[in-house]
């Protein structure tokens, strides 16, 4: 699905990481962990082509993202749902409009009933007409998840999706992500929350990757 081959990333002359190879198979569930500043967010950005690697290759469905034009990358993002750390909503649009935004920009028809079902799935039916600044942290994360899956993407990438949430809300969000994986979606979650990873492993077969010393490693059995 998404493949990184000997990828390196440099900022300001220094390597953030290098020689990273990773293959996200269809339907797989991965966690990406590591200390703050290790490059988890950067690695995710490489996966949805917001950044280009300093070296190596990133490919999606066998196609190198370097060979893709801007419109191809836009189309690629319709197949990759992303839950950003800071959610990134358009504050002048309602929650429902924000969730439907990927459909709007792709000029695809919007089924209001399906949209409300999706909002119901993430528990935000009552907040459909609210503006993003009126939502709590947990509600924002769930709205971001709904927006990430509305195009029925093949891959779901989540960057610290539970970073600002309490434990109950984190588990609720995790359950939604596991549900999506059971529906066949490939899931990659960047997090430094080891408790979340342990909770997930009770529900799903997940591989845990760790960025340490500028390299990507498979985490130990303790996780």
């Amino acid at each position: 699905m998404i493949e990184l081959q000997n990828v390196a990333m440099s900022y300001g002359g220094g390597d953030l990481f290098s020689e990273i190879s990773l293959k996200l198979a269809p339907g797989s569930f991965h966690f990406l962990t590591g200390p703050s500043g290790a490059g988890k967010t950067t690695l995710l950005k490489l996966c949805y082509a917001e950044l280009m690697p300093s070296a190596g290759h990133v490919s999606f469905m066998g196609r190198d993202v370097r060979t893709m034009g801007r419109d191809d990358i836009a189309a690629l993002r319709g197949r990759i749902g992303v839950v950003h750390q800071d959610c990134q909503f358009l504050d002048h649009l309602s929650v429902a409009e924000n969730v439907a935004l990927p459909l709007t920009v792709a000029r695809r028809p919007l089924d209001a009933r399906e949209l409300m079902e999706l909002l119901g799935w993430v528990g935000l039916k009552a907040q459909a007409d609210a503006l993003p600044p009126q939502l709590s942290g947990g509600e924002r994360q769930r709205a971001a998840l709904a927006r990430a899956v509305i195009m029925s993407p093949d891959v779901l990438l989540a960057d610290e999706p539970t970073g600002n949430l309490d434990w109950d809300m984190s588990l609720r969000l995790l359950t939604l992500l596991v549900e999506l994986n059971r529906m066949g979606k490939t899931v990659l979650i960047a997090t430094h929350d080891l408790n979340l990873i342990r909770a997930a492993k009770q529900q799903v077969s997940a591989r845990v990757l760790r960025i340490a010393n500028r390299r990507l490693q498979l985490a130990g059995a303790d996780l």
Binding site: Y48, E50, R70, A74, A75, R77, Q88, L90, P102
Partner: peptide
């Protein structure tokens, strides 16, 4: 706004 639109898959022309 433009960054968000690009991230959710909007083309430049859109």
């Amino acid at each position: 706004v433009i960054r968000v639109l690009r991230l959710v898959g909007a083309r430049d022309s859109y």
